[in-house]
């Protein structure tokens, strides 16, 4: 992790109509830093990282991505700025979102050829290397629907990497996968982290976050409730809200019991 800040989020607020998705969120991401964003669903984690590559606009605050200042409101940044951000920031989605009518190889080479104008031959060569890296080079000519979820997600990672991004956004990359397929995708992500890629990862895999992330951010109730070095945050959370959340995900059955006791203890007068 270097000192260079590549994503700077300052007091960011996002609403859908009158519903607040998140408010007053501030976070700096440094080059080669791995930031895991965890928290209960509906906290605004996915929407936050979607603001970084401008899939979503935001309403208040400021956001700087790779030295580009993004403005609040629904007005898109200039074509060059948007293009620069989108090519330098890759994204992997919860539902893979591979292009089903294109083969695995075509999925990977489409953007390099169309956006970066890489010659087809070179794009194919590069794509095969990436597919090899995620262990799927022999599936290059298959259609995505013929593959397992874990394989599809690894293709999606290769597709994003083909643009040679500096930052990768992962939006719950393993939550649609069967448990036995989670490992292969996490392996691929871990390799990226080791290679020094800057990662922003929304996840429910606490163990993975603890091992791979430099920084863990816990979002709940539409704001960041805790952030810091991953071990510190996940092993000794300071706020009660963070403790309750972690207890619930790390030990679901026991935590519910505990909460009920707490609730009975405190709310006895009702």
């Amino acid at each position: 992790m270097s000192n260079e800040v590549v994503v700077s989020i300052r007091n960011l607020t996002k609403r859908f109509g009158k519903t607040v998705v998140f408010e007053d969120v501030s976070l700096d991401v440094h080059r080669s830093e791995v930031v895991a964003i965890v928290g209960p669903s509906g906290a605004g984690k996915s929407t936050l990282i979607r603001c970084v590559n401008r899939l979503h606009p935001f309403d208040e605050g400021s956001l700087q991505v790779l030295n580009h200042q993004l403005n609040k409101g629904s007005q898109f940044p200039s074509k060059q700025v948007l293009n620069d951000i989108r090519t330098r920031v890759g994204m992997v989605f919860q539902t893979f979102n591979l292009f089903p009518h294109l083969s695995v190889l075509e999925n990977v080479i489409l953007a390099p050829i169309e956006v970066k104008k890489v010659p087809r031959k070179q794009a194919i060569q590069q794509a095969m290397e990436l597919l090899d890296m995620v262990g799927l080079s022999e599936h290059a000519n298959k259609y995505p629907k013929r593959m397992s979820g874990g394989q599809q997600q690894r293709v999606a990672i290769a597709r994003a990497l083909a643009m040679e991004p500096e930052i990768m956004l992962f939006d719950e990359p393993t939550s649609m996968l069967d448990p036995e397929l989670v490992g292969e995708v996490l392996d691929a992500i871990q390799r990226l982290a080791k290679d020094g890629m800057t990662l922003m990862l929304v996840t429910h895999e606490m163990q993975f976050a603890k091992e791979v992330a430099d920084t863990v951010v816990i979002m709940a109730d539409h704001r960041i409730i805790e952030k810091g070095p991953s071990r510190e945050v996940l092993e000794n959370p300071r706020t009660g809200r963070a403790q309750a959340f972690l207890k619930r995900v790390l030990n679901p059955v026991h935590a519910t019991e505990l909460e009920r006791e707490v609730a009975v203890g405190h709310g006895g007068g009702r």
Partner: peptide, 29 residues
């Protein structure tokens, strides 16, 4: 699916290429 548009946008594909290479072939089917 909306996810197709998002994936195309995230890759930096422009509106026209997204239409031609991603949306229309699937819509046609």
């Amino acid at each position: 699916a909306q996810g197709q548009r998002e994936a195309a946008s995230a890759l930096g594909l422009g509106r026209w290429i997204t239409m031609r290479k991603v949306i229309v072939p699937q819509a046609f089917a």
